[in-house]
Simulated scan of single mutants.
Amino acid sequence: MTAHTATTLRSAGSTGISLPEAIRRADLGDAVALLASAKKYTVARLSGGRLSVPGKGSFADGAGVAGTSTERALPLSTSGPDAVFEARIFNKDAELRWLHEGDGLGTAVVLSESPDICRPLGEFLDPLYAVEQIDNRYLLWGRPLRSHDSGASTGPLSTGPLSTGPLWVRLAEARIGLLDVPVSRAPRENECVFLRTVEYVTTEPEHGNAYVAEERLVELFLAPPEQSKAAGSPQPDRLPEATR
């Protein structure tokens, strides 16, 4: 973990808003979306205001890396087991959170250190004055599968020329099966996918005790697991709820 100086975390919220409308108004640009429904947990890519996931042929013949040309649009159901009840959509600048309350409408909040990013969503909420920021990372379950040019259809990736993104990488793990996630480049050998977050530390006014008051999701990125362990980041059995 890495600590940084004091900052202010801004936020703005809106009630009685649908998820598509919250996405449109927040206008985050390119981002990663974690979407929870009663039926499944989906990792999607947001670009141009549209949510996308890999198409049926994206990982043909066991390929572990796919481009965005084979994506399909992800429809957002408003009812039934496919309806999203919680969403967290994020990039390096901001995180949009949405929680369903009923009839396809819910509460949306956007968090950012920039008030200009928060303003379009709705009314400003009380700012969080953080005395310290802590960079944190969580290891996602699963190892990236090989790409077509690595000589096999399963197992860790080999070294070689890297494809740049945005790309989809397929992770495999016996406990969870397959998980497709969007990243900025193809994995190198022995790399894993991590979720980067920022923790905001504040103090309570009566006794001055410091505590983590908020954690903002930032990005998915690739790195060797040894580097993360050396930096003191959590291990796989301590994944945040959003990645389980």
Rank of each mutant, 00 (worst) to 15 (best):
T7P: 04
R10Y: 15
L19D: 08
P20I: 06
R24T: 14
A26E: 04
L28R: 06
V32I: 15
L34F: 13
L34C: 10
A36K: 14
S37T: 13
S37W: 05
K39P: 00
K40T: 12
Y41G: 14
T42V: 15
V43M: 01
V53M: 00
K56L: 11
F59N: 04
A60T: 13
G62N: 11
A63M: 04
V65W: 01
A66M: 07
S69E: 15
T70F: 03
R72A: 13
T78D: 11
P81S: 14
P81V: 13
D82P: 05
V84L: 05
F85Y: 15
F85K: 06
E86P: 03
A87M: 11
A87H: 10
I89H: 07
I89G: 09
N91V: 10
K92V: 10
E95N: 06
E95A: 11
E95K: 10
W98E: 11
W98P: 09
L99P: 00
H100I: 01
E101P: 00
G102Y: 07
L105M: 10
T107R: 12
A108R: 02
L111Q: 07
S112Y: 02
E113Q: 13
P115R: 12
D116K: 13
D116S: 12
C118I: 05
C118K: 02
R119F: 04
P120T: 07
P120G: 11
G122F: 02
G122H: 05
E123N: 11
F124V: 04
F124M: 13
L125H: 07
P127E: 10
L128E: 04
V131F: 02
V131K: 09
I134A: 02
N136F: 05
Y138D: 13
L139G: 02
L140M: 10
R143Y: 02
P144T: 04
L145V: 00
L145F: 05
L145Y: 01
R146E: 04
R146V: 00
D149M: 03
G155N: 05
L157F: 01
L157C: 14
S158M: 07
G165W: 06
L167A: 12
L167W: 06
W168G: 09
W168R: 06
W168E: 04
L171R: 03
E173L: 09
R175L: 12
G177E: 10
D180P: 03
D180Q: 08
D180R: 04
D180F: 05
V181K: 01
P182L: 07
S184H: 10
A186Y: 02
P187K: 04
P187S: 09
R196K: 12
E199N: 11
E199P: 00
Y200E: 02
T202I: 12
E204V: 06
H207G: 06
N209Q: 14
N209W: 13
A213R: 14
E215P: 01
L220T: 07
L220E: 04
F221T: 02
F221E: 04
F221K: 00
P224Y: 09
P225N: 05
E226F: 07
Q227T: 11
A230H: 12
A231D: 15
G232C: 09
S233H: 15
P236W: 06
R238F: 13
L239N: 11
P240T: 08
T243V: 15
T243A: 10
